[in-house]
Design a protein around this nucleic acid. Sequence first.
DNA 1: ACCTGAACACCGTTCAAGT
DNA 2: ACCTGAACACCGTTCAAGT
Lengths: 180, 180
Amino acid sequence: VPRQARISRDAVLDATLSLAEESGLEAVSMRAVASRLGVTPMALYHHVHDKEDLLDALIERLLGELPLPDPSLPWPERLRALAASLRETAGRHPDAFLMLLRRPATTPAALRAREAVYAALNDAGVPDTLVPRVERLLSTFMIGFAASETSGRFAAHDRAVLDDDLEWAQSLIAHALTPD
Amino acid sequence: VPRQARISRDAVLDATLSLAEESGLEAVSMRAVASRLGVTPMALYHHVHDKEDLLDALIERLLGELPLPDPSLPWPERLRALAASLRETAGRHPDAFLMLLRRPATTPAALRAREAVYAALNDAGVPDTLVPRVERLLSTFMIGFAASETSGRFAAHDRAVLDDDLEWAQSLIAHALTPD
DNA sequence: ACCTGAACACCGTTCAAGT
DNA sequence: ACCTGAACACCGTTCAAGT
C-alpha cells in the first residue's frame, strides 16, 4: 500500500487561501505556502503544476465559495445580493479578485455564478437570446465596481458614496430590465 | 558643473513602456529595464523610488497617452470614442491596464480623462450633481469591459460578439442619458 | 507515489565606494 | 549628482535521489 500522502491539493489550496487572507496575495510564494504546510517547496509540485496553476485554483475556489442568493427572492433582490457577495469577496481578497478578469469565464465556478444571473434575468423577462449578453454586461460592471472599490481605484471615496453609486445603478438596471 | 546624467526618469519610463509592449509586463524587471538602458540595475534607483513607483508611473503615462475624442463631436460619439481608446490601450498593455483598477482615480492623467467624460455628460444634460456619479459608473463599466476582453475573461468570445455587446450597451446608455 | 536536498537562474534592494 | 560592484535575502523550478 502506498504511504499516506502528507499533503493534498486541497490542503495546498487551504494553506494558500488562508495565507492570502492573512498577508495578501503578494505574500503567497511557493516557499511560503510550503513552509505553512511544514513541507519542502518542491513537495507542492506533486499537487500543483506550477505557481500559475496554484493561483488559478485559488481564484476558482474563491469564486466557488461566492454566496449565491436564495432563489426564492424576487429577481431584483437576487441581483443586489450577488453584487453584495462580490463586494464582500473582493474585500477579503482584493488581489485575487482582480485576477478574476484574467481567467476565462468558462470554469465550473464561473458557470455556477453565471447560472444564478441567468435565472434572475429570465425571471425579469429578458428575452432568451439577450440573456447571455446582458449577463456579460452586468457581471462586467459588478466585477469592475467591486474591484475598483477594493483594489484602490475608488480609494478617495467614502463607503457611503459607493453604496449610493451602486444603489443608483441597480435601480437603473432594474428599471431597464423591467418590461414596460 | 555636474556631469550629464546618462539616463533620466523619462528614459527609464520609455524603456519600461517599450519593454512591456514587446514582452509583456511580466518581463519588466528592474534588471531588464536597466540592461535595456545599458546601465546597472542600481542606476534606476536614482530616477525611480522603487519598482512600485516605476509601475505607477508606467500606468500614469499610459493613461496620459489615452487618445481623447474631438470635443466637437456629438456627446454619444465622444463616449464611444473613449471606449474605443480604452479597448485599444488595453489591447497593447493588458497587464498594465488591469493595474488601472489599483490606482486612485485622482492622478493628473486620470483627471484629464475624467474631464472628457464630464464634458460629454454635461452636454447630454445630466444634472451637475449627478455627473460625478454617472462618470464613476460609466468608467467602471468601460474599464471593466476592456480589461475583461484583453486580460482573458472574455477569451471564449469572438471580437464581433464583444463589439455587439458594447454597441448594445452604448445604445442603452445613450438612451438612458438622453432627457425624454 | 510522494517528499527531499542541492542546485540554477533569476529577483528587488542596501550599502559603501568611485567619479 | 549619478553610476557601479558586491552583497543580502529572497524567488520559481529542475533534477536526481531517497523511502
